[in-house]
């Protein structure tokens, strides 16, 4: 089981209200990603769930029981830290065994569980090494191993891939996703990288300044961002946001159009290509469109347009997002 409910959870450090008040339901077996810019309170929220910080007010329920005042060890959760937080003086075997040893499990059973975790994570050959002798990806696996042997009711991940290089990050991302599919345990994953959020999550929680901006599946957030913040945050490259006359024509304060939803060739809008990036699979254009501002356009495949060219382009009509003066979505 791994069902977690936050009710009006607030956290202040002195006068600074890091989390002004959050309500959230996380269902058993869900992969939930907290995403947001740095300083948005996503890590604090995770640490509140872990019990590494006290809530200022509000309640945290884990599997229906009030866990607000339980110490971290009693919550039945496991955490993987950004720096991996492996014990440098212990071998991989001892690192993975540590939580079991703390729980007072008998040595034979500990051995069995450690061996199992090592097999699952491809660490069998490294059990007697120390963390200092491992690569970044291997360390990450040890940290995950330490988490899975406890069979926790939920896993907490605090930006676990940010210390890895780009290639490794993609691989580990897939491994964690597969792990979730095998274990079917609740996972809460914090990241500032919206690609990680989009690729891994069942449910994304977008945070900004301690507030939840929107909760939904990746495609819901992509298709129907509830407000300007989510519109700008989810999607890469970023959505083009246009204000002024063009927006007023559609009865909105601001309209948004994603770069991939712009057709090049003809249309009402025109501009000069300031920069063109040809990747083969995609072509990214930065277009100076006068009153509309600088627009990003994404063309599929090879597009025969170059820096300095003047082009005409148009939005796909059904893909235009409209927002009111408060930044909220108009439908």
């Amino acid at each position: 089981m791994g069902q977690i409910t936050l009710k009006q959870v607030r956290k202040s450090f002195g006068d600074v209200h890091v989390i002004p008040g959050v309500d959230l339901d996380i269902n058993d077996g869900e992969f939930v990603v907290f995403v947001g810019p740095s300083g948005c309170g996503k890590s604090t929220l995770l640490r509140l769930i872990a019990g590494l910080e006290d809530t200022t007010s509000g309640k945290i329920h884990i599997d229906g029981k009030d866990a607000t005042d339980l110490p971290p060890a009693k919550r039945g959760l496991a955490m993987v830290f950004q720096s991996y937080a492996l014990y440098p003086h212990m071998t991989v075997r001892k690192n993975i065994a540590f939580p079991l040893k703390m729980a007072g499990m008998n040595p034979a059973e500990i051995d069995k569980k450690v061996e199992y975790a090592a097999r699952v994570l491809n660490l069998a050959n490294y059990l007697d090494r120390r963390p200092g002798q491992l690569s970044g990806g291997q360390r990450q696996r040890v940290a995950i191993g330490r988490a899975i042997v406890r069979s926790p009711s939920a896993f907490l991940f605090d930006e676990p891939l940010s210390n890895l290089d780009a290639a490794l990050r993609v691989g580990m991302r897939q491994e964690i996703t597969e792990l979730h599919q095998n274990l079917k345990t609740t996972m809460i994953y914090v990241t500032h990288d919206q690609v990680e959020a989009m690729t891994m999550a069942d449910k994304i929680v977008v945070l900004n300044a301690g507030n939840i901006e929107q909760v939904g599946s990746p495609l819901e957030l992509y298709r129907r961002p509830r407000n300007l913040f989510v519109a700008g945050f989810i999607g890469s490259p970023k959505m083009n946001l246009i204000e002024g006359a063009e927006a007023a024509k559609l009865g909105a304060k601001t309209i948004g159009i994603r770069p991939e939803h712009i057709e090049v060739g003809s249309g009402p809008w025109s501009g000069t290509v300031a920069l063109s990036e040809h990747l083969g699979s995609d072509t990214f254009l930065k277009v100076d469109a006068g009153e509309l501002g600088i627009m990003t356009v994404r063309g599929s495949g090879e597009v025969n347009v170059h820096t300095g060219d003047r082009i005409q382009f148009a939005p796909q009509a059904d893909k235009v997002h409209r927002f009111d003066a408060n930044g909220l979505r108009l439908d």
């Binding site: 590494l52 110490p71 971290p72 060890a73 496991a78 955490m79 720096s83 492996l86 014990y87 330490r146």
Partner: peptide, 10 residues
């Protein structure tokens, strides 16, 4: 973080 990890580990 390492001390926090040990706290999480019980």
């Amino acid at each position: 973080e390492i001390l926090e990890a040990s706290r999480m580990d019980g």
